[in-house]
Design a protein around this nucleic acid. Structure first.
Lengths: 220, 220
DNA sequence: GCAAACTCCTACATGCGAGTACGACTTGTA
DNA sequence: TACAAGTCGTACTCGCATGTAGGAGTTTGC
């Protein structure tokens, strides 16, 4: 007998905005196994989406090794799940990226930052793509803010110090960096490129592109 | 009274392989308005997908200004529609690209080819993305074969003649070209780049990247 | 060891997109 | 002008994914 409600305690909505009074108690008092499952789900989301970009919630639960209901116990909706998974990935990434020294020669700092970023991009770009389909663009931008401005700042310093060419705006250098890293990730996925070599190939394109002016043939 | 069957004559499966005997007559005897609608549908597919990457068949029909049934009269299934639309886009692209002279200085030829390709990429990259989700990769590759080998051949000649650096494989140069063009298209879509300027920005990245060796700092 | 917290199975309800079927109406073409 | 060819609205069927509801069994924490 007994048994009335069920499913996990459900966590705060990440962004601590909305309705606070409803919760059954505080918020951060989860049981150890629940916390463990939450982590498994987050990790499972990344790999499931990686295998199949439009994996269903059921697919993700299976990948994570938990029941679908358990998953819904932790994340009310699919977007909420994707949001949490991406936020988690980015947060882990931050831990790595924030360690990278941005001092010294801008070119060398750029190389350091790229090779650290590359690994993260390679790991969660599928998730990012999925997120772009169900989360507002503003939310995505918000999550990437730190990483974005870190790279942006470095490029700007390189600009100012003359290490990077100034005939191209920083925004275009930034975009180029992104797409080339993504291209490398794609090549790795296709088996045409060894992940180990990727940073070298990326640098081999970006460094000359960022430090040498356009070809002389260009009149103006 | 009367009226038994209905819907358009339906066209051959593009790849003239399968079951021939079934058809109600030959194949290429369509009425003028039917042909016109077919064209409207193909065009509508491109723009509908561009507006919303996962537009439904109903969305596409609406965009094309025809009834959903009419669309199904021309294309049996969604994949068949996407296939036809992409094939059509590529065919039109071929008409343009095949005019581009690949002779003379490889770098200049490359610039010509890129700026012609860019327009096409910008127009149908959304459709390509959609196609990648419902068509076998082999089919996509098959359709791009001509354009791909044209660019590949040019890069290879540039390699051989020493116009392009040889410390990077042609495949990586090709990939880079793709992703940078796509990146530019993305920037245009986001309103951060004027379509007119795109070819210049693309060249500004690719030419130095392809003609200058890696930065001296690189020991090996 | 006991109650609360969790997991997870079965079963629904719902919504949406792909295709199919039918039939009335319109348009091209001989 | 007559009739085949084509359009297109309505109305299904079907499959699949999301999210909900109970309740029985299991684990954790005190």
């Amino acid at each position: 007998m007994a048994t009335k409600k069920a499913t996990a305690t459900r966590d705060r909505p990440s962004t601590g905005s909305g309705s606070s009074g409803t919760g059954s108690r505080g918020a951060a008092n989860q049981r150890a196994d629940a916390l463990r499952n939450r982590a498994k789900i987050l990790a499972g989301t990344v790999t499931a989406i990686r295998k199949n970009p439009d994996a269903s919630v059921a697919d993700i639960a299976a990948e994570a090794g938990v029941g679908r209901q358990t998953l819904y116990g932790h994340f009310r909706t699919r977007p909420e799940l994707i949001d949490a998974a991406l936020a988690d990935s980015i947060e882990r990434g931050e831990e790595v990226l924030s360690q990278v020294s941005l001092d010294g020669d801008p070119v060398e700092a750029f190389q350091r930052l790229v090779s650290s970023s590359w690994v993260l991009v390679d790991r969660s770009r599928a998730l990012l793509a999925a997120a772009q389909k169900e989360l507002p663009a503003s939310r995505i931008r918000e999550m990437h803010e730190k990483a974005e401005s870190r790279m942006h700042g470095l490029l700007e310093r390189g600009h100012a110090e003359g290490a990077f060419r100034t005939d191209l705006p920083v925004s275009w250098l930034l975009t180029t960096t992104h797409v080339v890293m993504n291209g490398a990730a794609e090549e790795v996925r296709a088996g045409r490129l060894d992940p180990e070599d990727a940073p070298w190939f990326i640098d081999a394109i970006l460094l000359p592109a960022f430090t040498h002016d356009a070809h002389p043939e260009q009149p103006r």
